[in-house]
Amino acid sequence: MPPRLNILGAGRSLAIRSRPSIASQQPRILNAVSRRGYADEKDQPPSGPNENVEGHVSEYEQEMSRITGGTKPDIGQGTPVQEILERDEEGKEKAPEVIKEEIDGSKASANDNLTTFANLLALGQMENIAAGGHGSDPVTVGHKYGIPQLPLASNLNFKRRYDPVVNQVTNLIMRHGKKSVAQRNMSFILNQLRTAPPPTPNPSRPLLPGSPPPSHLPLDPIGYLTLAIDSVAPLLRIRSQRGAAGGGAALQIPVPLGLQQRRRTAVQWILDAASKKKSRGSGKGQFAQRFADEIISVVEGKSGVWERRQLVHKTGTSARANLNYGVRGRRSL
C-alpha cells in the first residue's frame, strides 16, 4: 500500500518559534575557571551554579559551635537577627533603625533570652507540669508533639489506624452499606465482652496456643474477639471440582486460606450462628448482644461453629489425595 500523501502534514513539521522571552541563565560557553583541573584540591568541585557558597548564618554558627564546643543553635528554627547582631559589631552599626532601637533596650522584650534550645526544652517541661502533666512527658522544641519515629508504625496510615480484626468484623457485620450502624454494633460487642464474666474455656476445644488466661480477656476486648475468631478460623476450604471425580461427581480439593480469608470464614460462621439465635431483650443492641454471646460461647467451646471447622478440616484431611489434581489433570489433557 502506498503511503498516503498529506499536504497539511508537511506544514506541521515546520515550527514557528518566537525568541525566548527569558534568556537562559547558563552561559553557552563555559568560562575558563570551570575548565581548571581540581585534582590538586581537597574539596570536590561544585556541581551546580549556587553550591559554592557559605552556609547561612545559623549553619555557620552551628559549625562554629561544633568546633569551639559551644551550644549549637537549632537549625530547625531560624536564629533571631538580634542574636546574630549581638556578636557582630559591624553588623550592629549597619542594622536598620528598628533593630537598633531594640538593641538599645528601649523596646527589648522579656522573652529575648528565652529562645535558646535548652530554655525552650525546660520551659516545655515546666508547661507540662503546670498543665497537670509530668516533666517526663514528651517535649520537643520546634514541633509541638515531636516528629514520629521512623520507621512509621503500621497504624500510622490513616486507612489502617484501627485494629485489623475490628475493621474486618465491622465491615462484615455492615448491612446495606450502613457503616455507622455497624460501628455502633461493634462498639456494643466490645463493651459486652468487657462487662460479661470471664469465660471458662473447654479443654477439648483448645484456643490458640499462647493465649492469655481467661481472666485477662474481658479487659482486652479486642484481644478477646481476635482470639475467638482466630481460634475457630479454618485453615483451608474445600473446593469442589465438578466432574473431576469421574461419572459427573465433584472432586473435593482442599485449598489453603490466607489470614484474612480464614478470619472472614470464621466471622461468617459466627454471624450465621448469631442470626439464628433468639434475642432476649428489645431495642437497638439486640443483634450485637447475640453476636457477643456467640463470641463468648466460641471461647467457652460451646458454639456450633467448632463443628463446622472440624468438618472442614476432616474433609480436607480425607481429600488430601486430591491436592495434586490440578497438576496431574493438566498434564493428562
Binding site: R194, T195, A196, P197, P198, L219, R280, G281, S282
Partner: peptide
Amino acid sequence: ERKAMRKRIVLSNTN
C-alpha cells in the same frame, strides 16, 4: 422482661 432488660441500669463491672 424485654423492656426491663432495655431499661436496666448496671452500676458495676466486676471485671
